[in-house]
Amino acid sequence: MAGGMRLEAAGKTPDLVAVKGGEAEAMFRRGIAALGGMRAFVKPNSKVVIKPNIGWDVPPERAGNTNPKLIAEIIKQCKESGAKEVTVFDHTCDNWSRCYRTSGIEAAVREAGGTMAPGHAPAYYQEVKLGTGKSLTSVKEHEAILAADVFINVPILKSHSSTRLTIAMKNLMGNVWDRGYWHANDLHQCIADYAGYRKPTLNVVDAYAVMKRNGPRGVSVSDVVTMKAQLLSTDIVAIDAAGAKLLGLDPSDVRHIELAAARGVGTMELDKLAIERISL
């Protein structure tokens, strides 16, 4: 990480880093450097799990899944920081093996030296109690999440027909087996409940290509704009609030962002945060 010395030398680590104007890998290199570098999150010999959005059987240009180049870059940096193993998975919506393949993520992960784990059968999930959830009190959570020391949440920013948008908190639905329960029992509340329980070590929002309508699956490439942006934060509510703004929505229009902020998972008031803005 040659760029690691650049911006953060001034002092305090920012709450949120927003990068624009570069390729996905370049934006990540600058963004993570601003947060103190990958070594601030990944200790030597640790087990890392990366959770992209791989929900749909669509190719990268459709922006239905996280950019495979970004995933590859993150894996590379985890490895450089001494990670023992890097596992990538999603509980996909469309057929899992087709999603893994068509998204380009399987190939990218393999090339970068990570491991793709399956998530298409209940055998890969274990029951955990949430304790504090309002609508959601227990979930079956993926074994890779349960086994990991470091959890990096890497969603793609998209419009979403049921939750208006899908960013970091919504992406965590792919950590669990029974999503139908969430849909049937106050979806927004369940998303906020789970976000209150499982806090990613780091969130990276891919906004390089952004599906502005017909999400989350999209219908054609005409739904997508090349925004060339990326967000990084440890605060999942803040990053979702910033992502909402990128899509032209007010964070308070998205109920799960409000609910999560209200229960103190993070802050949605962006003007109270230290935001580092980087243009490449």
């Binding site: 919506c93 979403h160 027909s161 049921s162 939750t163 999503r179 139908g180 849909h183 049937a184 029992n185 106050d186 979806l187 927004h188 509340q189 017909n214 989350p216 699956r217 219908v219 109920r255």
Partner: peptide
């Protein structure tokens, strides 16, 4: 529909629709 009976968002149908024949 859950949206009517429970008055909470759901939209699982529309999410999965590949042609957006089901819109919210």
């Amino acid at each position: 529909c859950i949206v009517v009976t429970k008055k909470t968002d759901c939209g699982a149908c529309s999410e999965h629709c590949p042609t957006k024949a089901v819109k919210m």
